[in-house]
Design a protein around this nucleic acid. Sequence first.
RNA 1: GGCGGCGUGGCCGAGUGGUUCAGGCAAGGGACUGCAAAUCCCUGCACCCCGGUUCGAUCCCGGGCGCCGCCUCCA
Length: 447
Amino acid sequence: MLRLYDTATGRVEDLGLRRAGELSMYVCGATVYAEAHAGHGRFGLVWDVLRRYARWSGLSVRFVSNVTDIDDKIIARAAAESTSPAEVAATWEASWWESMDRLGVGRPDETPHATAYVERMVELVGSLLDSEKAYLGGDGVYFSTASVPDYGLLAPGPLEQLQAGARVEVSEEAGKRSPLDFALWKLAKPGEPSWPAPWGAGRPGWHTECVVMALDLLGDGFDLHGGGVDLAFPHHENERAQAEAAGRGFARHWAHSGMVVAAGGEKMSKSLGNTMSLAGLLGSHDPRAYRLLCLQCHYRRPLTVSPATLGAAGRAVEGLDAFGRDFAAAREVDPDAGVRARFAEAMDDDLDTPGAVAVLFDAMRQVRSAGDLGVAAAVIDAWEKGLGLPLAGEAEVPPEALARAAERDAARAAKDWSRADALRAELAAAGWLVEDTPAGTKLRPAR
RNA sequence: GGCGGCGUGGCCGAGUGGUUCAGGCAAGGGACUGCAAAUCCCUGCACCCCGGUUCGAUCCCGGGCGCCGCCUCCA
């Protein structure tokens, strides 16, 4: 039984499901106005691992993750580039999925777009206005946080203190009744994209789209709402407040993934300008290295990403591939139940991937010394199906390389070492590493 | 300013009141090999500082120092 830390209760809780055997999860996705960075990569990987592990452990999973394709930054970039917001969003959304694909992050079952849900957001805002949970301010419609008794559940502390310490100047001109109130609808200024609404044309505020989309696609009382921890407050709290004010059951559990920090120790974010581009990272490292690096750190903790940590993970992946090649035969064997159980025990404990990975590395060493194919099978299955990290199998070696390898075997048999070494060099030049084994020469692709 | 978190061996990163101090990478030694590669074995006496509780604390409590996050867009 999977247990996860729940931001709403501050404890690790059993993941009680709405319907036994079925996990419905919604994860706040990207606002597509710029290139994805390493932090987004970790974010994608964390939820991908959760989803895969849930499947591995026998649950059917329905995974919804949105794309915010209209917001202030998209509009600003479109203006700066003399193009349309739709164009900006399309460009960067394509880039986002390309990077996620390369990372091996599975596409969500549904990827709702904000612009496709505007009418339903208008309906929600209208109903909140009708029930006086929202009001018309100077430049838009605002949600009255005071109308939700337990507003602040996902906030890091008591609300009075949030207010007292708020660094933001309360925008009096906007007509907000409380600094905690937030925009449900922003009235359009000249030249801005807009949709019609009874109270004036404009666009939805960010916090509304997820409410409408999650409830539409997953239904009331869906199981898990996830996202980066920087979204817990106010974004997720504001979603929750709207759903509650509308009388809808929202997420049963809240989970949040930790940030990536740059080598200097600072959070990597677009606003700070200290990002490592995800595409760049993927260009210089095996995507699986980044997955392993993320797995080796608990998902709620900050993770240091740097060329050094990526390189170390990459070398570990080479060891995994060696294992995959050496025990390719294990794929035909029933996996060892003990290893599966120890792996699951770690994963069930708030997705303890560092512990799970340690179980697998230990088991691999056991296989190397004892040769138990069932254990090997369990290890390979856990890496690939449980964690989404595929291992190399036997390489397809072209005939000419095989011919050289055979020639080299003959030379070695004749103790013609210089000839053997020359052939090894030729193979290396062709991209093949030579390994001599009791079973004869083996070739593997040089990475 | 308010709230919260963190400080572990060369690096990343788990964890626990005390015997054998996860795991990965790197390093040193050994085995195997014609030489390699891959692999295996061995090695490192780590827990920011100062008090306290305790028979005993890296792990509990208090204080200090440092770093970081949230409170604003943000994965």
